[in-house]
Each structure stands twice: as structure tokens, then as C-alpha cells.
Simulated scan of single mutants.
Amino acid sequence: MAGLGYIIFFLPMIVMNESKFARFHANQILLLLIPEVAITFVGTILSTMLMASFSFGLAGIISFIMVAISIAIGVVAIMNMIAAFRGEAKRVPFIGHITIIKNSNDMF
């Protein structure tokens, strides 16, 4: 269930709420989902504003950076999904220590 949570993020919390392993991965999933949503939201607004002001080159650069960051987040999500299917508890690089879901980092 923890591995499938990287596809449907709330699945581990609904199906296996008492599992420390599922809670850990649900927390890691949220740590990936929140920046992805924020980057998409801010990047889209910035690109739209720049295109409206006819700064197509700068809008293209912003869009490229947004896509590159999204791909990096996707790669980390896939790596963590594979680790979850193997039964490993891997933290997301740089931000994996942050706790959003209560008692989710009790594994370490």
C-alpha cells in the first residue's frame, strides 16, 4: 500500500492508518506533492504573466525550469515508490526529515 501511495497519495492513510511504514511513506508523499503543486501553480502564473507582457523568452525559461524541477520530483517519487515496494523506508533528499503527518517519522 505504501508503494501505491505514490500514485494515489491518500491510499496508505486510508487503508493502513496504524502502520508506521505506511504513515512514513504517506509523509514522504506529501513532502513531494506540496512542492510539486506549488511549483506548478507559481510557474503557470509567472509564465502566463510573462507571455501576456510579450516576454516569450523569459516565459520559456520559466517553463523549462518548472518542467525540470517537476521531472526531478517525479524521479525521486519513482525511487521512493520502488523502495516502498521493497519494504525500505527511504527519505526524500533534503526535505525528508520534515514531519507533516503526526508520528510518521517514528521509524528512525
Rank of each mutant, 00 (worst) to 15 (best):
M1L: 14
G3M: 06
Y6G: 05
Y6H: 00
I7P: 04
I7W: 08
I7V: 12
I8S: 03
F9R: 07
F9D: 07
F10D: 12
F10M: 12
F10G: 06
L11G: 04
P12T: 10
M13A: 10
V15D: 09
V15I: 14
V15C: 06
V15T: 10
E18G: 03
S19F: 04
K20R: 14
K20Y: 11
F21A: 02
A22W: 07
R23W: 02
F24E: 06
F24L: 05
H25Y: 04
A26E: 06
A26C: 04
A26P: 06
N27P: 02
Q28P: 07
Q28R: 11
Q28W: 10
Q28Y: 10
I29E: 09
I29A: 12
L30T: 01
L30E: 03
L31P: 04
L31A: 00
L32N: 13
L32S: 08
L32G: 14
L33A: 12
L33S: 09
I34L: 07
P35W: 03
P35N: 04
V37R: 05
V37A: 10
A38F: 11
I39V: 15
I39H: 06
I39W: 07
T40F: 15
T40P: 00
F41T: 13
V42E: 01
V42Y: 03
G43W: 01
T44S: 15
L46W: 02
S47D: 09
S47G: 03
T48Q: 08
M49I: 15
M49N: 11
A52V: 00
S53E: 14
F54N: 15
F54L: 13
S55G: 00
S55W: 13
S55I: 00
S55P: 01
S55Y: 13
F56Q: 09
G57V: 13
L58E: 04
G60I: 01
G60R: 01
G60H: 05
G60E: 05
G60V: 03
I61Y: 04
I61L: 10
I62K: 01
I62T: 04
I62Q: 02
S63K: 04
S63E: 01
I65W: 03
M66H: 07
M66K: 14
V67I: 15
A68N: 10
A68P: 09
I69L: 14
I69M: 12
S70K: 09
S70C: 03
A72C: 09
G74L: 07
A77V: 07
A77R: 15
I78P: 00
M79T: 13
M79F: 14
M79K: 15
N80M: 13
N80I: 08
N80D: 12
M81L: 11
M81D: 09
A84S: 09
A84C: 08
R86G: 09
G87E: 12
G87M: 13
E88C: 08
A89M: 10
K90D: 12
K90I: 06
K90H: 15
V92I: 07
P93Q: 10
F94S: 02
F94R: 02
F94N: 00
F94P: 01
I95V: 08
I95R: 02
H97W: 14
H97M: 00
I98Q: 05
I98G: 03
T99C: 11
T99I: 11
I100G: 07
I101D: 07
I101M: 06
I101W: 09
I101K: 06
N103P: 06
N103L: 11
N103E: 15
S104Y: 04
S104L: 03
N105W: 05
M107A: 08
M107T: 14
F108V: 10
F108D: 11
